[in-house]
Amino acid sequence: MEFTADLSALIDVLDSDDVDGYLIDDDSTDSDQRYVSGFTAPDAYQTLVTPDGGVHLLVSGLEYGRATAESNADSVTRRASYDYQGLAVEHGPHEGKIRMLETFLDDHDVASVSVPRSFPTGTADGLRDRDVSVTVEPESIVEGIRATKTDWEIDQIEATQRANEAAMATAEALIASADVEDGVLVHDGEVLTSERVTEEIEITLLRNGCQLDETIVACGADGADPHDRGSGPLEANELIVIDIFPRDKETGYFGDMTRTFARGDPGEEARRRYEVTERAYEAALEAVEPGVTGAEVHDVACDVIEEAGYETLRSDPSTDTGFIHGTGHGVGLDIHEQPTVSPGGGELEPGHVLTIEPGIYDPAVGGVRIEDLVVVTEGGSENLTEYPVALEPAAR
């Protein structure tokens, strides 16, 4: 990671709570761990933040060289420095780890730690048994810090979004160039399926340095469930929802975008729902600026959809059709993080990166969703997405 996290807010909490340090015990799939340490490893390692702002890593010998070269830490220590193997043989792996951590903390004059809510219970209880005070934080301090992106982070997210757009163009071109036979899309003599489009999306992303665990290519009634991945043949005259949320393999930052297409005529009602969704999306984008809350932006989208005669969870909390999710969410090292653009969403600040993604859903008609990725700026917002919005697919 090419920047050093500003942990001043965490240091302030340590000071106010009179705690000696903040300890993370996880692998780098935990985004807080990756963010604070500036390091990635597949096995758990420990990161300690001390009140002077120091960041100290405890890693295996296997990871020591990389951690020394790549991390943002002020110090990196091998487990072997505390004879972990000997402790594990004498006391067992778990107790050996606890005794090693106890000594590591003592070396940094730490007798009390605050830990994230995801901290392993076994590690916490083991440290307490060794007279180390362990307090679980009531709120995720590091996640709150991560919500405000640096210029470097915004550049990485934007780069991932460019790869995302290349993948969307691949998917759209497949749909646009397909033949129609008996109401089904056919490409190069084979039925065009959700799985085939997903495969081509993934190949494009790999060629652009990104990875994708899952994506959504959902046709017809499948698209009426916002998280249905979609399967089977893609049909003409039906709405097709494509939601791609890749992660850059090197930096770890996500992108996120959704477009809805229809090859042929999906019908008057489907077209109307698309137009209403697009108006809600544009109104919500316009509302994003510093000082407004995520809840207020969500209300703007709901206003447009409700005025057009469709239900939202605001107008009917029990509805299973209409606008049945929030308007957006933060994006960064996690695909869903702070802030939230939904009921209860707090104040937006410069540096927040978030999605705007209203939708209207009904199995009888299909689903519509349009999603862009934006950053809150000092004067309003900037759309990080450059991909066109259009119901009719085209080769781009």
Rank of each mutant, 00 (worst) to 15 (best):
F3S: 08
L7N: 05
A9T: 12
I11L: 14
I11T: 13
L14N: 04
S16V: 08
V19E: 06
L23P: 02
L23V: 07
I24L: 15
I24W: 01
D26I: 03
S37I: 02
F39V: 03
T40G: 09
D43K: 14
A44R: 14
D52T: 13
V55M: 02
E63F: 14
R66G: 09
R66Q: 14
R66D: 15
A67N: 11
A67I: 02
T77F: 04
T77W: 00
D83V: 02
Y84I: 14
Y84R: 14
G86W: 10
A88H: 08
V89W: 03
G92D: 10
H94F: 09
I98A: 13
I98N: 05
I98D: 04
R99I: 01
L101K: 07
F104I: 00
L105P: 11
D106R: 15
D106T: 15
D109P: 03
V110G: 08
S112Q: 02
V115K: 01
P116E: 11
S118Y: 07
G122Q: 14
T123Q: 06
A124E: 08
D125H: 05
G126C: 09
E139T: 15
S140I: 04
E143P: 00
G144F: 00
K149F: 01
I154F: 03
Q156F: 00
Q156N: 09
E158N: 12
A163M: 03
M168S: 08
M168R: 10
A169M: 05
D179F: 10
G189S: 12
E202S: 12
L205P: 07
L205A: 11
N208A: 10
Q211Y: 06
E214F: 07
T215I: 00
T215S: 15
V217K: 00
D225H: 05
P233C: 03
E235M: 08
A236N: 07
L239R: 08
L239D: 12
I242V: 15
D243K: 11
F245S: 13
D248E: 12
T251M: 05
F254Y: 15
F254L: 09
R259Q: 11
A262P: 04
D265R: 04
P266Q: 13
G267S: 10
E269W: 01
E269M: 11
R271G: 04
E278R: 14
R279L: 13
E282N: 15
A283K: 05
A284Y: 06
A284P: 09
E289Y: 01
P290R: 10
C302N: 14
D303H: 03
V304K: 02
E306Q: 10
E311R: 12
E311P: 00
D316T: 05
S318H: 06
D320E: 14
I324K: 03
T327P: 00
T327A: 11
H329I: 10
G330P: 06
G332A: 11
Q338D: 13
G344E: 13
G346C: 00
H352V: 13
V353Q: 04
Y361T: 01
V368R: 00
V374D: 01
V375R: 03
T377S: 12
G380V: 09
N383H: 02
L384T: 06
T385F: 07
P388Y: 07
E392N: 08
A395I: 00
R396G: 15
